[in-house]
Amino acid sequence: MKFLAKKIKGNSLWSDALRRLLQDPFATWSFVVIILYVVVALLVRAHLIADGWQESIGGSREAPDLSKGVLHWMGLDIFGRSVILKTIQSTYTAMYVGLLSSLIAVPIGVIMGALAGYFGGWVDDLITWFYTTLSNIPEFLLLIAIALAIGKGIDTVVIALGVTSWVGLARLIRAEFMKHKNREYVLSAQALGGGHIRRMVKHIFPNVLHIVIIGFSLRFVTGIKSEVILTYLGLGAEIGKGSSWGLMISDASGELIQGVWWGLTAATVAMFPIVLAFSLFADALRDAIDPKLRT
């Protein structure tokens, strides 16, 4: 009896998932990297680091020089600004785009999917029609239309990505809510007098939370990567208003031929760990939670 009680206690979905995640070195390291980038972004936001990134500390475009101090390690850009500080400053932009676009997309996806899956009937028909319609506009064209409607800039990238990228998540959440709404635990909550909201939020939602977290990670990656592309295409960050990895990589399209490789390298090297970390974290979480994939 004692043995049995112990075993049941140790087997809740989340404690089990946590144990699996901690056993997976990729997941642990991914989490450390994500925390590190969040801390850097917060420090930039608080003007504690890279605050003087716009100051010129030398002539135009100097190659990396290890002997002149940390600020020269990744060279200087066209205005003589330290590329290291610029890259750190851009980390804030990337995290800002990733976080805000996910914070728009994920709640829309969850609420739409939950309502459609839980209530069914005409609510489901309406929401399904709406997102099928939206997903029938190729994403890039929809981004252009939104940018045309609200103007160009980094916030346009955030809003456009937010309102275009929730459909996939809504589909998944809808299917999960349909599956869960007639399960015994939800029916017993109903028998105890739990209303619709209580059943959706308190009972079903915790059981689909892993999908929400995975969706959040994947959208974060999409946000960071899309910022680069949209900036290059002239829809994103503008020169003179902060800095971003997209601007640094776009600048390189003229610089590389002149032998200026450090701006591109710095932005790419800075972007690689955080994108990789979010992808690996999403994969690890899926493996830890999804019983079908367990071998």
Binding site: K225, W245, S250, S253, T268, P273, S279
Partner: peptide, 22 residues
């Protein structure tokens, strides 16, 4: 392929043009 996808598409285009063409 996971690692390759963590680098922006634009970087591959830039690097490809620089190395192969220039």
């Amino acid at each position: 392929s996971v690692a390759a996808q963590s680098v922006s598409l634009l970087v591959y285009i830039l690097a490809g043009q620089y190395l192969l063409a220039y």
